[in-house]
């Protein structure tokens, strides 16, 4: 019979102890977690040697389906928080993982997710140092929800933030847009596409280090929900500037382009899970771009636009034949406007 999560696994009793010891600790294999105390204890001295500020981020992950081409919710949970830390210039250090499991979840599926989560953490060079597990009644959650929080250290000379974006900066992305959103649609069976479309889910801290080594970056954001459109609107608003993107410069996977042309979905609004948008002074942009392209997570990096002074902040997209449209902060789902 298929082994499944039961309410007993969240009871705090023996079943739970076994679940944690046999299935989680083995995977993570680190001394801090193995202490099984109520808290992780982290030495300050090495952190203080690495930088002068602690970065702290949290993110919760709910996705349907929980496994999809290119990733799963476990991998996503690590990448999300690691990337939030990394785009601020932090060196990700350690993570907490909170699991909410639905009664009836297949144990084999959970094993796969935890394996994936642990492998991603190893790849990103972060340790999972503390965690928590709850089991809820069938129907109270959808298979599994994960929360991760993470800390990292920001080296003292690094200063990144939206307020540092200047007129004249160029706008860079590290690869094709909308892959995660499209992969999820495909995995849900809403679109049966020929060929394989994979989520771009990946940790970006390695890429960020390569970029910062190549030249100064004014600001970075990871373009998850709301896509590049949301990021650009946030930056434009904080900096009080106009961002102009060039439609022809946007890197878009042919399959994603196909879907967007047929269904009218805008890749600029679609979700990514391994894409960052960077703002770099023009004189450093080529060097940073070259560093991105030399890194496995940035082979299709591109300069997609520029920052200009403006009376009021806005994001524009220049199309062919000099047409130009406003790109707004996404409002819920895309809705037709044409009367």
């Amino acid at each position: 019979m298929t082994e499944r999560i039961t309410l007993a696994h969240g009871s705090g009793g023996q079943a739970m102890q076994r679940l944690i010891k046999e299935r989680f600790l083995a995977q993570f294999d680190n001394a801090e977690l193995a202490r099984m105390e109520d808290q992780a204890q982290l030495a300050l001295a090495p952190m203080m040697a690495a930088g002068d500020r602690l970065a702290f981020a949290t993110d919760s992950f709910v996705v349907d389906p929980i496994e999809f081409p290119g990733g799963d919710i476990g991998k996503l949970a690590v990448c999300g928080t690691v990337n939030d830390l990394a785009v601020g210039g932090a060196l990700p250090h350690s993570l907490s993982v909170g699991l909410i499991l639905e009664e009836g979840l297949e144990m084999a599926v959970l094993d796969r997710l935890i394996t994936s989560l642990a492998a991603t953490a190893r790849a990103a060079g972060v340790q999972v140092v503390t965690g928590d597990t709850k089991v809820v009644h069938r129907g109270s959650c959808d298979k599994i929800f994960i929360n991760t929080s993470g800390i990292g250290v920001i080296p003292s000379h690094r200063q990144l933030g939206a307020h540092r974006v200047q007129p004249g900066d160029l706008i860079l992305v590290n690869g094709t847009l909308g892959d995660h959103g499209a992969a999820i649609l495909q995995a849900r069976g809403e679109l049966a596409l020929s060929g394989t479309l994979e989520s771009d889910c990946q940790p970006l801290n390695g890429l960020v280090e390569a970029m910062l080594a190549a030249g100064p970056v004014h600001a970075m954001r990871d373009a998850t929900r709301g896509g590049v459109a949301a990021v650009c609107n946030e930056i434009a608003e904080v900096a009080g500037l106009r961002l102009t993107l060039k439609e022809s410069a946007l890197p878009i996977h042919p399959q994603v382009r196909g879907i967007s042309e047929i269904l009218g979905l805008d890749p600029l609004l679609m979700a990514n899970e391994g894409k960052l948008v960077a703002f770099v002074a023009a004189e450093h942009a080529e060097a940073v771009l070259a560093a991105m392209r030399a890194h496995p997570s940035g082979r299709e990096a591109a300069i997609i636009g520029a920052v200009e002074p403006a009376a009021s902040h806005q994001v524009l997209v220049e199309g062919l034949y000099g047409t130009c449209r406003q790109l707004l902060m996404p409002v819920g789902e895309q809705l037709p406007r044409i009367c």
């Binding site: 849900r188 809403e190 679109l191 047929i262 269904l263 979905l265």
Partner: peptide, 23 residues
């Protein structure tokens, strides 16, 4: 026309909202 993909979009309501549009 790519009827297959379009019909999937319609079936799953993917950027294919319903409207009672005379136009």
């Amino acid at each position: 026309k790519p009827l297959g993909l379009l019909r999937q979009g319609i079936a799953s309501g993917l950027n294919c909202p319903e409207a009672s549009s005379a136009g």
